[in-house]
């Protein structure tokens, strides 16, 4: 196995400086070169915040409160801003959730892609040529004409292709795709997923797919990290995760998927709701909703090796009640 591209250790994000409220509580995550990992969880589980923390793009009042983000030997959490800036877009790039708001409405789409190259020292002529090439590669028709369009002249799917072109302009070593299809029509979703997967293989970059759609995960990734309430609760190879989940939350998530045989049955739900960042849950964050909760769960469960992966649960699956 090759060495890790990214090693996140005990990464925590808090809001506010004077009376900080911790939102992400010590995340561990490892990515090898070319590996594809899915990060799954409900809204508010801290997935997006964690990804922005990796890019050091958290907006006030959020900030990294502890932990390390080792990327190719450097600790991103400790890097000075100018050094971090030179990595953004060149070594680590991101595709964002909503293509309707993530492009600058006042700038031609071509200029926005070119800018990603210019700010990293590519000369203007080369950048323009590369931009046309990228437009063609991500499937935007008639690049010579469309580079001059403004974002509002494009559909959501086309805009997301622009964002993808922008992210891949410099062939980064790590791509973070933060729910890149949630804002798009279902038919377009498949095209965009296919495109990113294809480019990922072609360029051999490590990719983190952030999603709340387990279906996406099953097809695209090798390994899945499940987040709940700002914690990693399970981290396992995709096949094992689906076959034998090691955490009750993962098990409940899988149970809430529609039955693939097409049999009509009411979808299972997880009663209750995820904790708010301001709510402090003693011990395991999932305890109030967990069908397997015991007294021991009042203590925070460590993330320990379990089968082929890791899980943060005191109760092993063979002790679960049905």
């Amino acid at each position: 196995m090759n060495s890790p591209v990214l090693e996140v250790h005990d990464l925590a994000v808090a809001a506010g400086r004077k009376h900080p409220v911790e939102i992400v509580h010590g995340i561990d995550l490892t990515l090898r070169a070319g590996e594809t990992v899915g990060v799954v969880g409900e809204s508010g589980s801290g997935k997006s915040v964690t990804m922005l923390a990796l890019m050091r793009l958290l907006g006030e009042p959020l900030h990294i409160s502890r932990g390390h983000v080792r990327f190719r030997g450097q600790d991103l959490a400790a890097l000075r801003e100018p050094e971090m800036r030179s990595l953004r877009g060149r070594e680590i790039a991101m595709v964002y959730q909503d293509p309707m708001t993530s492009l600058n409405p006042f700038m031609r789409v071509g200029d926005q892609v070119t800018e990603a190259l210019l700010v990293h020292g590519v000369d203007e002529g080369k950048a323009t040529a590369r931009c046309l090439e990228l437009f063609a590669r991500v499937g935007i028709p008639d690049p010579a004409r469309t580079v001059r369009a403004y974002p509002h002249e494009f559909s959501g799917g086309m805009r997301q292709r622009v964002v993808i072109a922008m992210a891949l302009a410099l062939r980064p070593a790590l791509l973070i795709a933060d729910e890149p299809t949630t804002a798009l029509d279902v038919t377009i979703q498949q095209q965009i997923l296919g495109l990113v997967a294809e480019l990922q293989q072609e360029m051999g970059m490590a990719t983190i797919w952030v999603t709340h759609d387990l279906g996406v995960v099953a097809r695209l990734v090798e390994r899945v990290v499940v987040m709940y309430g700002g914690h990693v609760v399970e981290d396992a190879p995709v096949a094992q995760l689906f076959a034998a989940p090691q955490h009750p939350y993962t098990e409940r998530l899988l149970a809430s998927l529609p039955n693939p045989t097409g049999e009509r049955a009411p979808l299972a739900q997880i009663p209750g709701r995820p904790p708010l960042p301001s709510e402090h849950v003693e011990g395991c964050a999932f305890r109030p909703r967990c069908p397997q909760a015991r007294d021991v769960c009042a203590m925070p469960p460590p993330l320990v090796d379990r089968a082929a992966g890791r899980a943060a649960c005191w109760v092993p699956p063979h002790e679960w009640s049905a």
Binding site: M55, L57, G59, R85, S86, L87, R88, G89, R90, A93, M94, Y96, D98, T101, S102, L103, N104, P105, F106, M107, E115, A116, V119, H120, V163, M166, A167, A169
Partner: peptide
């Protein structure tokens, strides 16, 4: 969001302020 996107591609502060924020 678009200002964050610009930061995400590594746009330096002055260019960010003028070409994205002021614009």
């Amino acid at each position: 969001d678009f200002v964050r996107t610009a930061r995400g591609k590594g746009v330096p502060p002055r260019r960010l302020q003028v070409r994205h924020v002021l614009r």
